[in-house]
């Protein structure tokens, strides 16, 4: 695994680049960035999920890392298939990812493998569909009174 890309992430003007990572390598990369003293990205700010559309057929997940020690920020991007949205969970590296992953599962239906307690966070457990997907249509007959 070549980590030279990550050294170029932070530009001189304070902006930073997004680094694209394969889903299979995600855990290795995050674990390296957290534990390596050169990077020391010890905090996961947030996980952002983007639905790139039905035509493209992809989801994008952006892991927003922050280093308390150096003050730098990193953005790791993962693109996964829309039809079988599976990605390894990172709660073993960052515990705070648990709620992010539950919310992303709730809103986008992306399944985080090895997350032992993955469940809907905001919507009821009996909810049908994933509301923030581009092709989501509300057609639950239980909510017909609200139309």
């Amino acid at each position: 695994m070549n980590f030279d890309d990550f050294k170029m992430m932070n530009n001189a003007d304070g902006s930073f680049n997004k680094v694209l990572v394969e889903p299979a390598e995600l855990c290795v990369v995050l674990s390296y960035l957290k534990n390596n003293a050169e990077f020391a990205f010890d905090r996961l700010n947030t996980i952002i999920a983007v639905d790139l559309g039905v035509e493209v057929g992809k989801f994008e997940l952006i892991y927003d890392l922050h280093s308390i020690e150096t003050g730098k920020t990193a953005r790791i991007s993962v693109i996964i298939d829309r039809n079988s949205p599976h990605i390894p969970s990172v709660v073993e590296i960052f515990k705070s990812a648990y709620f992010d992953e539950c919310e992303i599962y709730d809103m986008f239906g992306i399944v985080f493998d090895k997350n032992s307690d993955l469940k809907r966070l905001l919507m009821p457990q009996s909810w049908i569909g994933y509301p923030l997907r581009k092709d989501y249509v509300q057609n639950d007959e239980r909510l017909a009174w609200n139309d």
């Binding site: 009821p124 007959e141 239980r142 909510l143 009174w145």
Partner: peptide
């Protein structure tokens, strides 16, 4: 729930 039909609208816990 809707009283006429008894459908539970949503169980929000």
């Amino acid at each position: 729930l809707i009283e006429d039909s008894g459908i539970i609208v949503q169980s929000w816990g």
